[in-house]
Write a protein that binds this DNA or RNA. Structure first.
Lengths: 240, 240
DNA sequence: TGCCCGATGTTGACAGCAGTAACATACCTG
DNA sequence: CAGGTATGTTACTGCTGTCAACATCGGGCA
């Protein structure tokens, strides 16, 4: 008994047709070897994450999507966690792209431009969280050894090189804050630690939209709330 | 074959000894009926959550801890999610307690007292997140039908009665903000929506401590960062 | 050119999980 | 004291992550 519940297409050995016909990688014209399985799996996992959040990133489901056996994934990823980590990284890149887009909308120099640029960053951040909640949540989910890995015991282990944690997005914020000091928006003595307030506010607001009482807010009100939050955090940073 | 891998003590029917000797409920002097299984399971689940976060809340593990078969839990909880919800509620109560403790540290009236009281709330909030990260995370985890339930499809369903979501803690914040308006700390026209900024900032800061770059901060610096964040959010709310 | 080895993918299996069904016990109520 | 019901138990299903052993293919050396 025990029908093979796993791979949808032809089960028994000897069938020379089915194996890896489906997906993207045109390279190997796919029979037995996929040719680009790693990326195909990541892509599938990303789709899962996008529509179901981190919990939906199921190794076997990704393999199924690609039309490959579950264990094949272990030739390209150490772990489930490792696969999740790849999705996480993708999510972070997307987030950075949104922030950059938000910041680039504002040109020019001077206090007001910088101020608007900061708001743009925050707007982009929150917008990404709202338009891609699954990816956003995945980008911030624990488990999934990312830039800094989490051991099985839960201990945190520093990555060797990079400044870690959301490196790039954090960096963008820092740069803009430096700019704000340069143009006199923020006094130098209030500069250290300013990232944290800004980040906390924006991240918190995003969370309120995703899990909190703001989830079902109509679009117009949502926009108002976002502007309000962005205004408040800037006001706080610039206050005497 | 198939050794009974589940309940540790005597497997085969007919053994009149072992079943429910272990835990707290002294009520029924425990043989077959536990007497207070629901609460015992919740307690066990709380311990799991405290030391491993929401993912560690495994129904079977809780049952094991209490010394009862896994399926017994289904007499007291609809779901895994239902059990998780109970833990979540406990976590929220603990959070409220911490906030109240933080707020009560400040007596007196007038602008400065109110201001300090708000900081106290925030301090209590963040402190809870830092001292009980597992419970805090569980208190805010999706899945786990809490005050407002989440259907299997992911749709959100309003609870009938309560204002929903972190009701009590949100309420405390609102009351204190009202007080702030009353004593002239915040202008009335900036009052609406003020909860959101405040909540977002504090929640975000807590998250940065748990998952973000602040996790390994030495105690002294952590205190500084917290005060900084609290200062900034208040400054933002009070700014013209 | 041909063959062989390592990379890649497959079947099969195991343990742990949520959840259901059918059976067992013990408490409480009439 | 009898029986119904609340509570607990043993299977069992189907899902997951992960390991071990086997199969296949493609590229480098002869």
């Amino acid at each position: 008994m025990h029908a093979n519940t796993e791979a949808t297409p032809g089960g028994a050995a000897g069938d020379p047709s089915a194996p890896a016909a489906a997906a993207a990688g045109r390279r190997g014209k796919g029979r037995y070897h996929h040719g680009d399985l790693r990326n195909a799996l990541i892509q599938a996992a990303i789709e899962l994450a996008a529509e179901g959040g981190p919990d939906a990133v199921v190794l076997r489901a990704a393999a199924r999507k690609v039309g490959v056996s579950a264990t094949a994934a272990y030739r390209h990823f150490e772990n489930h966690s490792d696969l999740l980590g790849a999705v996480k990284e993708h999510g972070q890149q997307r987030l950075v792209a949104c922030m950059e887009a938000g910041g680039r909308e504002v040109h020019g120099e001077g206090p007001e431009a910088t101020r608007q640029r900061m708001k743009g960053l925050g707007r982009g951040y929150i917008q990404f969280a709202r338009t891609e909640p699954g990816l956003y949540r995945t980008a911030f989910c624990r488990k999934a050894l990312g830039v800094l890995g989490i051991t099985e015991e839960g201990a945190i282990v520093e990555g060797d090189e990079e400044p870690g944690w959301e490196a790039r997005s954090f960096e963008m914020l820092s740069e803009t804050l430096d700019e704000a000091v340069a143009v006199g928006l923020i006094t130098p003595e209030r500069r250290p630690g300013a990232e944290l307030s800004a980040w906390a506010m924006v991240h918190g607001a995003a969370m309120l939209f995703l899990d909190g009482p703001l989830d079902v807010l109509p679009e117009e009100e949502a926009g108002y709330v976002i502007e309000r939050v962005l205004h408040d955090v800037l006001a706080g940073l610039m206050a005497p």
